[in-house]
Structure formats: C-alpha cells, structure tokens
Design a protein around this nucleic acid. Structure first.
Lengths: 334, 334
DNA sequence: CTGTTAGCGCATTCAC
DNA sequence: GTGAATGCGCTAACAG
C-alpha cells in the first residue's frame, strides 16, 4: 500500500547525504543554495512527502496532535467548540484528533487511553463524569489537559467556561423586570455542573427579588426536547401556571417552544432560553448568548501555552454571556 | 515532557524479553499464562502505555488514522458527517483526524498534504474545488480516497452522495400538486455540483409539468442566509411574484423564511426546503430530508473496505431523500 | 513458548 | 557547508 520515497532516496537522487536532505526539507540554515535546489528538485520529482510519524518518533515520541474528547460531535455546541479548537491549533501547526464520548464516563476513559497512545501533545476535554482519577495520574505525569464547558472537580487544570451564573441572573432579572413573578426554570440533568450553577443562581436571583418560593417552578430532567416539553406541559396544567419560562439550555428551549405552541394561551407565556441558535432570530426568541467557537479557541490557546511552559500558573477563563432580546422575553404577564 | 516507560523497561521489570512483553500487550497467543500475568502487572504498575507512533512506524509507516477534510466543522451538515464517520471508524479501531478547508480549494490542497504527511490510512473529502489533480496523483500512488456529498469530477473514486435529483423532483412535484405554477428556486453558488444537479432537475420537472418558463424564477448565489433573503425579497417584489419557493439548501431556507416573514402576504407563500433542521418541525416547514450521519458512516465504511481490498470495484452510494410535509409546502396559491 | 537480530524513516549529536 | 553514526519505541521474521 502506497509505498513512498524516503528521505534517503531523495538524498541519493540529489547526490547528497541524508542529513543534508533533511536540512533542506526542514528549512534549516547552512545549506548552499545550489544544493538546496537540487534536493528540492529531487523531492518534488519523486513526489516525496516527509513522514510525520517517523519525524515525531525521532523527535521524542510526541506527535503534533491535540486530542479533543467531547460529548457528541453532532451536537452543534460541541461542533462549534471543535471548530474553534481546530482553527487555533492550525495557527500553531497542530492537528486535531476528535473522539466522542457520548457523555459516557467509561467511554471517556478508554478514549483518553487511545489518544494517549497516539501521544497527543495535549488533551482538551468536556468532562462527562465526576471521576477524573485516570486523568489526574496523566497530568501528574506531565500531560497537558484543558477542560472546557464544565470544570473538572478537584483538579487543578486550565479551564474554560462561560459565566453561567451571570447569564442566568441576567435572564431571570430580564423576566422580573418585565413584571413576571411566576417564572419556571426548566433545566437539564441535576448532576451536571452547568445545571447546578444555573439553577442555584436562578433561585438566588428570585430570592433577592422577593420571590421566596421559586422552587415551586423549578424543574430538571430536560435532557432532550421531548422531556422538556413534557415538563412544561405539566407546569402549564398546574393550578398556578408560570407566566414565563427560563429554559436552561438549547434542548430545553426547543421543548418549551413545542409545549407553548400546543397549549392554549401558550403564546402569552414569556420565554428566555440559555444558548443562542440560528433560528432564534426568526422565531423571535430572547436568549442568553455566548461565543462557543471562541470558547474552543481559548481552550486550544491554553493547551498550546501550557505545552510550551508546563510551569505557568493554572488559568480559569470565564467567557461573558449576554441577553439578546428578540421578543419572547419581553412579553408582560396578563 | 511526559517521559513514559517503554516496552523495554516493562520487559526488564517483568524479567522477560522485549518481544515477549510486546506479545502480551498486543494480545498475541503463545505466551504462558504466568508470564503474561507478570508482564501485565509490570505494565500497570509502571503506568505503561504503548506508543502508537512507534508501533505504526514499525508496522510500515502507516497510522491508524483517517483524515476528513471538510468545508466547515461548525456547519451542522458537516459535523453530522463527521459524527457518522467517527462512529464507524471507531468500530474498526481507527481514529478521526479532521481539518476544515473553509471551502477553499487551495487550503484543501495544503490540508491534504498535511494529512498525507501524517500517513493517514485513508482520506475522506468533501471536495471544495474542481481541480483534484493533487489527489489524483495520490490515488495513483495507492492512497484510499472517499468523496462525500459531491462527486470529484473525472475521478474514479468511491463516492457517497444523496439523491439530489430525486429529492428535487419530489419537492417540485409536491408544490405542483398543490396547485403552484410560479415556483421559485433559490440555490447556492452555481459552480457547486449540488446546485447544478438540483437546479437542472427543478427545470426538467417544471418542463414536464408544462411550465416551460421556469427559469424566470430560478435564482442562485444563496451562499448564506442573508444573500438568500435578498434574492427572495427581489422575487416577491417582481410583477409576477412566485406563489411558492423551493429553497435548495439549509441556508437558503432560513433566508427565505426571513424574507417571507417581513413581506406582506409572505405567509401565503408555500415553502419547501432542501435539508432538514431541528426546528423545522416547530416552524412547520416542509423539507426534503435525508440522513447526514448515515452518509458519513457509509463513507467511512467504504474507506475501510477499500483499505482492506484496494482492488475492489469503485462504489457509488446514493442515499435516498424524502419529502416531510409539515405545512409550509401544502399551502395552495390564492 | 520465548529470545535475538534487524530494521521502520527520520533527527540529532558531533566530526570533517 | 556537509556527512557518518546512533537511536526514538516498537514490530517482524526467524531461531531456539
């Protein structure tokens, strides 16, 4: 299969030593222009292509690859992350190796192993589980790890997250300022860090606003749109239905909108969604937005920086969020 | 940085030869259970991890990586492809190396080079340009290449596409059957193969239905939602505006919907979009749907099959499409 | 069942 | 400016 000419072959064709050919192809100085040209000619005419596998091995066994372990590449949030990571890595001549964990901690572990065998220079992870013992050992051994979206509990690593609390507070206040008191919070699985952050801040904001019993309208388990829809249907059927919904993520927003579409008077209910999405503008949905591509870019940046200087202080990057009013969050309660 | 124990160290710790240790860690037969256990113990206690870089080199210089060169990972269509590819590769113990070309042919060329240097076992590409001369040479040299979404003109390689003509015909007929004659077609850049296929079939279908001057409502250049919107705005302002729009891709659909939202009487215009999207259901948009994840999976499958048997006949996989009626395509002209 | 001998393709000393 | 020697970590024949 695909036997390519080696450096040695090129060197021989050019009538120079292996090392000289190597120098030319690595753009090293101290080569006569004439020799350089001869080597270059030989290389192109032979269709030479350096073998990065061998080069990396010779250089110390590390590849110029960076691994990214993510929940699900098909999810637009993760693919935005991947896109930002890839873009930044390329600036530094690094390549991106992706692997999907399907949010399964066990799978995350085995993928970590595979990427480590590939001798990635760094690992960027959106941690699925709470147990990071495997990673911890690798970090101690010198592996560069950067964590995105959710911090890895108890681990002292570079981290990139968004301002979940600030975003939630702003969203809740936005609804409060428009006169709402009975505000429902529809969130993801309770064990997720982002859920905990967002729900806690929601309750705190409500309490500060003088709405002490906000827990009554707090719901979790909206791991997909269908589940979210069911939650909202139930909320609306209750004796004291909410006049507004704060959907704590992308899928919760979709489910909420489905429920409101089908419910009588559903178009009277105010909605603010966490996470922006392409059609939010068209649908007139007010959201808490942030830049996922930038998140990925920053994570890659941190990975590069730490690889270059393992002793630099650990960084926590918190990206800002902002409320984008588009109509759905500005409806007043009747 | 991260100096790990080598096989030799493990072998010495276990009191066996390097080769025996290699056998154990590669799960080869012909090793006594006792020795096996000793080696395994040594490996785990030393935190050994095989070096895939070195292993691949020794095996012949090829890595167990498959490269995927795509337009833009942040685009949900491409990330769905990537997801399907990754899933299938993993079944075969292969890893996915992704690179975004931003639909730039030149960039596609340099990325191809980089991946080749990494000695990927196969390359999966959504071709950006029309010039595949670089790839052609590599294929002749034995590289496995699979092309997705658009065929590579004049190249005899495994290809996975959807039934663009069938989908377009079904969409056009759907509108015709609901009484429309003045149907606009809003498509992407004219140089794209998918545009050519879809627009040609659109015109043919219209002609077959006795609408000979369908070109009047044919538009191209909807490379993003904003451009598509402008096109539709113009169409609606014309003396004989269309009563229906066939949006030839995802972004064209979004732009069309934006234009219709803002136009008086826009809600009377029927719409069928090519490419399904998550909120199409909520918005009640009739679409031509197909399975992008499956597309990626099939592409990876072909890549694996050809790597195993370079002499197998070249395959063209055409995935089916289907019209999903959701309301917007069923409006009748006034 | 196990060990010995050679490389894989390249980069890195150090001489010349 | 240039080249010869040595090794990265592992696998692949062959012997024993």
């Amino acid at each position: 299969m695909n036997r390519r000419p080696t450096l040695a072959v090129v060197a021989e064709a050019a009538g120079v030593s292996l090392k000289t050919a190597s120098r030319v192809l690595n753009r090293e100085p101290n080569v006569a222009d004439a020799t350089r040209e001869r080597v270059l000619d030989a290389a192109t005419s032979l269709g030479f292509r350096r073998n990065a596998v061998a080069a990396d091995l010779a250089r110390g066994g590390f590849s110029r690859l960076v691994g990214f372990i993510t929940g699900d590449l098909a999810n637009e949030f993760y693919s935005a992350l991947a896109s930002g990571i890839e873009r930044e890595l390329r600036e530094h001549g690094l390549q991106l190796l992706t692997a999907s964990s399907d949010e399964d901690p066990e799978r995350e572990g085995s993928l970590t192993g595979e990427l480590l065998e590939r001798r990635v220079g760094a690992l960027i992870v959106t941690p699925a589980g709470a147990d990071h013992s495997a990673l911890r050992g690798e970090i101690a051994a010198g592996l560069t790890v950067v964590v995105v979206d959710r911090p890895a509990a108890g681990m002292d690593v570079d981290t990139v997250v968004i301002d979940n609390r600030g975003g939630t507070r702003a969203a809740a206040r936005h609804l409060l300022e428009h006169g709402h008191r009975r505000i429902a919070f529809v969130g993801d699985a309770p064990h997720l860090w982002t859920y905990q952050e967002r729900s806690a801040e929601f309750l705190a904001t409500m309490r500060d606003a003088g709405v002490p019993d906000a827990e009554r309208w707090l719901r979790s388990g909206a791991h997909d749109a269908a589940a979210a829809r069911d939650l909202v249907v139930d909320l609306l059927a209750a004796p004291e239905p909410p006049t507004a919904v704060l959907a704590a993520n992308n899928r919760a927003t979709v489910g909420t909108l489905q429920a409101l579409r089908d419910a009588p008077g559903g178009d009277q209910v105010a909605v603010v969604g966490f996470d922006d999405f392409e059609l939010a503008d068209l649908l007139g949905i007010t959201v808490v937005a942030y830049d996922a591509v930038e998140m990925g870019r920053r994570a890659a940046e941190l990975a590069v920086a730490r690889s270059a200087d393992p002793d630099r202080p650990v960084e926590l990057v918190v990206l800002p969020t902002r409320v984008v009013p588009r109509g759905s969050g500005e409806r007043r309660p009747r």
